[in-house]
């Protein structure tokens, strides 16, 4: 007769496997190297007293004008440029300002403003204008931002500044 001590019954083997997936925090950093921060710069444009116009800086820093305004060719333009770090292989979504929410304001008269709309982003990982990028094997990606500025007929001359926020989320 085999007697099994009760204490042995209580010593059943329990095998437990545990794994953890740690996601590196996603961050955006300014990679422009510009003093004061990354800047979407439309350069200088000459107004038209009778007609409005637009200035677009593409995500590849190509400036085009529409309507009756004239670009001052020698003035430089720039896209805003951002670096993204996070977990390699993960995709992320870029959120840009909605139309109608961003303006630039005259440095001499805050009553003078111009709307900035049609923000676009171009992740380096995508090579195209889109709002989804992929963190590379090195744990980073980058993207540039362009937009369109609307200049009213007879817009007051001067320097205009503004700011906008960009958000990145893991998908």
């Amino acid at each position: 007769m085999l007697a099994v001590p009760a204490t042995m019954v209580a010593q059943n083997t329990l095998s437990a496997n545990a794994s953890a997936s740690v996601v590196i925090p996603i961050t955006i950093v300014d990679i422009s190297g510009l003093t004061g921060g990354t800047t979407l710069n439309f350069g200088a444009v000459a107004l038209d007293f009778a007609n409005s116009g637009t200035v677009t800086v593409s995500t590849q820093n190509v400036r085009t004008v529409g309507g009756s305004i004239t670009a001052v060719a020698s003035t430089g333009t720039s896209t805003a440029s951002f670096g993204v770090t996070g977990t390699a292989g993960k995709t992320y979504a870029i959120t840009l300002p909605a139309d109608g929410t961003i303006s630039v304001v005259s440095t001499t008269n805050p009553a003078n403003t111009m709307a900035v709309n049609q923000f676009l982003a171009r992740p380096a990982s995508a090579g195209a204008d889109q709002l989804t990028g992929t963190i590379g094997v090195g744990g980073s990606d980058s993207f540039t931002v362009g937009a369109t500025l609307t200049v009213a007929a007879g817009q007051a001359e001067g320097i205009y500044n503004g700011s906008f926020s960009v958000t990145a989320n893991y998908n």
């Binding site: 794994s19 953890a20 979407l40 107004l47 200035v55 937009a147 958000t167």
Partner: peptide, 30 residues
């Protein structure tokens, strides 16, 4: 009674981040 427990933990920290960019332009007379 054998029990196998597999535990999986997903630690997600700071899944969202925001940064500010600047805008600049100059309007000149024609």
């Amino acid at each position: 009674m054998f029990a196998v427990a597999i535990a999986t933990a997903s630690i997600t920290v700071d899944a969202q981040t925001t940064v500010v960019g600047r805008l600049n332009t100059e309007i000149v007379i024609p």
